[in-house]
Design a protein around this nucleic acid. Structure first.
Length: 436
RNA sequence: GCCCCGAUCGUCUAGUCCGGUCUAGGACACAGGCUUUUCAAGCCUGCAACAUGGGUUCGAAUCCCAUUCGGGGUACCA
């Protein structure tokens, strides 16, 4: 079998949409699995809606996801002569005619042959038949001189030697038009695979009102590219067994177009988020810190005050507690800011009680005797305080936690103390005891 | 309206092509429990589906038809 050639052909009229990303992904997976070629083509024939900014954003998102192409990008706006040549050919052969519109001007229109049955054997849907009488004539060149989507698409796919057209379901009804064009041009017809659309969580078409719909938004929120890649690959495809967490290579290895579902899938943010938390848990500490750093900086924290080692340790402690990386900023506030942000409910419950103050007083006294925070001695110390007061360990841990972080929720208390440092720990306990 | 696609737990799906092994499996979510130094994480358990009606067949989630319900298209947008 000759090498397969596929293409991803977005129109630059907005950011890379989740649906578009999945189309790109499936083309990518198909090409890589079969050692073929992925061509990137920008379909900017709508010169009113296309923008360079969108093109750039699409490249960035593709790059972030790790979807790399082998050829291109080609721009349809730079290939107008080519489309005109082919339009002329059809005109000369009497298969197309000029059509004048008093308002818009002169266009070139392909006359759909009558009484024909057009058949396509879709790789995902099987055989689909269309009657030419329902298809209608096709505008080839608009009066602004630009080709229409259907025409440019056929010329390019043909010229670029595309063997498999993998695209969204919404193009099924374009396909008979394109097949008619291939035939009129005497060009071989590629194979088609129409993948179902991604729907919003309420079952309707994915749109802005469903929340985040662009790949860039997920990046900004702190989703990892490998999570989005993995999640998207499973939206409409499965390897056939129960495997869900897979590396890029594993997905490439197992991906076949035949296993793509012919049913539209609903986007499921909670599952993506779960998958993201999985990848966060397994990220090497240094890498995770690298991902967290921008959010920390953006929150206004002065990272230069701390040794990098300590920062890496901090982020590492929180990896099991965050589902998206952006959450790291809010949750580590106690570490970066000198003033503790005491949560009133936590203070009422654990510090303002007589028991709470007594515990903190005892901890304060004991801490005054030591010069270094080490897990084991520290644990013995706190446990003995609990014992002497007839409390469970958490009777000590919770007041202390609130005193140090302002919240009743934090990573394990010993690690938290080590992170904050002995001097600050003492200061905060003193401050907490003084709380009225 | 017309043309086209689709239909398994709330959601993503396995199973459908090659009917019996499916009293329908997994995952997310949800509920309960265990663990525990809080919250998470982790582990265990539970809840929960073959859209409906007709066929074909000894036997249908699997094949056929209809209905219903979703979705797409119907542009000199892509």
């Amino acid at each position: 079998m000759d090498k397969v050639r596929v293409r991803f052909a977005p129109s630059p009229t907005g950011y890379l949409h989740i649906g578009g990303a999945r189309t790109a992904l499936y083309n990518y997976l198909f090409a890589r699995h079969l050692n073929g070629t992925l061509v990137l083509r920008i379909e900017d024939t709508d010169h009113v809606r296309s923008t360079d900014e969108s093109t750039k954003a699409i490249f960035e998102s593709l790059n972030w996801l790790g979807i790399t192409h082998d050829e291109g990008p080609y721009y349809q706006s730079e290939r107008r002569d080519l489309y005109k040549q082919y339009a002329q050919k059809l005109l000369d052969e009497g298969k197309a005619v000029y059509q004048d519109d008093p308002a818009k001007g002169r266009a070139v229109v392909f006359k759909m042959p009558e009484g024909k049955s057009i058949r396509m054997d879709d790789l995902i849907h099987g055989v689909i038949k269309f009657e030419s009488k329902f298809v209608g004539d096709i505008v080839l060149i608009k009066s602004d001189g630009f080709p229409t989507y259907n025409f440019a698409c056929v010329i390019d796919d043909s010229e670029m030697g595309i063997t498999h057209v993998i695209r969204g379901d919404d193009h099924i009804s374009n396909t008979p038009k394109q097949i008619a064009l291939y035939e009129a041009l005497g060009k071989p017809v590629p194979k088609f695979a129409h993948i179902p659309l991604i729907m919003g969580e309420d079952g309707s078409r994915l749109s802005k009102r469903h929340g985040h719909t662009s790949v860039g938004e997920y990046k900004d929120l702190g989703y990892l590219p490998e999570a989005v890649f993995n999640f998207l690959s499973l939206l409409g495809w499965s390897p056939g067994d129960d495997t869900e967490i897979m590396t890029k290579d594993e997905i490439i290895k197992r991906f076949t177009i035949e296993r793509v579902k012919d049913k539209s899938a609903q986007f499921n943010l909670k599952k993506l988020t779960w998958m993201n938390s999985h990848y966060i848990k397994h990220k090497p500490a240094e890498d995770l810190f690298g991902l967290a750093e921008p959010y920390l900086t953006k929150a206004g924290y002065d990272l230069s005050r701390f040794p990098k080692e300590k920062l890496v340790r901090l982020v590492d402690l929180y990896r099991e507690r965050i589902k998206v990386v952006s959450e790291i900023a809010g949750i580590t506030r106690f570490f970066f800011e000198d003033a503790v942000n005491y949560q009133p409910e936590a203070v009422d419950k654990f510090i303002k009680t007589t028991e709470g103050k007594a515990v903190l007083g005892a901890v304060q006294d004991e801490l005054a005797k030591i010069t270094k925070l080490e897990h084991e001695p520290l644990e013995n110390l706190l446990r003995s305080i609990a014992e002497s007061k007839g409390l469970k360990f958490q009777g000590v841990a919770q007041p202390l936690r609130v005193a140090l972080t302002g919240s009743s929720v934090s990573p394990p208390i010993f690690e938290t103390m080590e992170l904050i440092g002995l001097e600050k720990v003492k200061g905060r306990i003193k401050e907490a005891i003084a709380l009225k």
